[in-house]
Design a binder for these strands. Structure first.
Lengths: 183, 183, 183, 183
DNA sequence: TATGAATGAGACTTCATTCAT
DNA sequence: TATGAATGAAGTCTCATTCAT
């Protein structure tokens, strides 16, 4: 069941959700086509399971990291580091979460949306703490710019070239932290 | 033929490339299904035409803007403003360019890639001018972060809420310009 | 109009009647697609025209050859020679006549059938003259065997290898003439 | 799966390979359209399966018949009888093999070609034994004439009229056997 | 005389899904 | 727990044909 999800991640990351056929997932998972339907009622449910698991874990990890920290800058670094490290270790899952965000609908979509919103709130609060109070720009917008930079990584990230992940974290800290406050 | 492309943009932006059926495009364009194939040999060619047109225009517009400018900061603002303004006026086209970047393959993909590379080079050079010399971070990486922020806009942009586009431009200038140099 | 028929022959000989699209014929003829429909009302009519022209000519040529001959053996040779020579010079036409014999239907089919029957009758009478009277085998059957041998030629005929057409004629004379009587 | 092949034979024999739609085959087989694709990956594969099965069986049957024979004339009769009897019992299959010989291409074509070549070699050797040594005509050519006569049968054969198959065999023996040597 | 534009029908094929086993 | 067999719906694309020009 977990190997099915791993296979689904791989295929959907490569072919997109619509382009990924249940057949291909089954083949990759080393399972009969109808074996998928024993564990998942739907193709949709595959995507839902991946997104729910991934976002949930991402949020949990971030909460753990933030728990011990007080300094706004440390918190922001935790946010960025958490996202990037998780990304590097679960590249397929995260690509599926980012690129197929709109591929779900109905109840599945809503449920994932809730977790995404929680994640966004966590990040936004940290970003806000790093901005001079009452000052523009709007923390929500800055968070969206930050997410843009982070979520775009899968488009160019190459483990051979960008092996040292701390470089990315440092970069984004340089861009999105004190410099914002410093204005 | 141009109305077909407009329809294709709309449908692909809404349903994704794989989710967009030629039938739906034809219906939206007010044309018989096979009418599409009179002008385009492929479904692929629809996507190709949209991406090629859009990126080409985007590059041309940017070149025009940059032609008159000398100050690095002005140039960076031109880059950001150009991208955002074009985006707001051609929201479907740009979404199709960003979200379906990998949906092409073969010769079509390569041809679009060339234009994208030209666009990237233009932006990277401007970004580089805005960084202290020899200093990290790498201009290429900073450009990728900038593109991330820019390309992510379609995920949250709402013309009613974000009606004043200069706000976005200002934000991104604040984040990506002098502050970088200021470190 | 004649160049269209030539093109049609070439394409149909290569791809079969169903496999030959009017588009391909038009392209080969160097004519617009709808140009075909100015001269021919139908795709069927193309095939009809080819078959009618070809069989008519074949019959006419045979009649001319037979006109001067009295000796049964000479007549048989004329039959075989006529068919083979015509075949070599109009390889596409004859292939279309043989291989697409059943591709027509209705009035077109019937009209061609009449000429084919006339051709068959001519040949059968010559074959009959070469058989001992009242003796088996039935001249009609022998004619069918002869036609089989002749019509199969397009499956293996190679102008480079089988350049000397008289060899084929001699062969078939050896097989289908006096030897029959000699039994 | 075998009923599908039987249906395919019937339809292809009637409509030709290009004219035979998978839908018609499915209907004849009493199967859903997509049911065909559960057993065959291609429309091509249907034709391939028919041709391969048929030629393979034809060759096997001929080998069995020839195994016990020594006399050249007996062998030739075996060749002719084998072909005609098989033809009468599998009229659709054989028509599909003869008329759609060139409808396959690529690997499918090559594989069938090999069996056809084996069949041809078997026949040619028997034909050669029935010719005076070193004498013309070339055994390969004579075999081709013989195949022509045999393969043309499906164009005129009518089980009601030609009920006694031995007549056909006798005819062809008369034409293609000792008489050749007798020259 | 000839064609560019357009279309409805139908072709092959793949898909998500079901169900008996 | 898992799958082989089967299917209806839908997908992309090609075809013969028409018609205004």
């Amino acid at each position: 069941m977990n190997s099915i999800l791993k296979a689904a991640s791989t295929i959907i990351a490569r072919d997109g959700y619509e382009g990924a056929s249940v057949r291909k997932v089954a083949a990759k998972a080393g399972v009969g086509l109808s074996g998928i339907y024993y564990y998942f009622t739907n193709k949709d449910e595959l995507l839902y399971a991946i997104q729910k698991n991934t976002f949930t874990t991402l949020v949990e990890l971030l909460k753990e990291r933030l728990a011990d920290l007080e300094n706004p800058r440390d918190k922001l670094r935790a946010v960025i580091e958490n996202h990037i490290e998780f990304f590097v270790n679960n590249i397929n899952d995260l690509k599926v979460c980012v690129h197929e965000m709109e591929s779900l609908s109905g109840a599945y979509y809503k449920e994932v949306l809730q977790i995404r919103r929680e994640y966004f709130r966590l990040v936004k609060d940290v970003v806000a703490e790093n901005l001079s109070k009452g000052e523009k720009p709007d923390p929500a917008l800055v968070s969206l710019y930050l997410f843009g930079s982070l979520n775009w990584i899968y488009m160019w990230y190459n483990p051979q070239i960008n092996s040292d992940v701390t470089v990315l974290t440092d970069n984004l800290m340089t861009i999105f932290s004190k410099r914002i406050k410093a204005t």
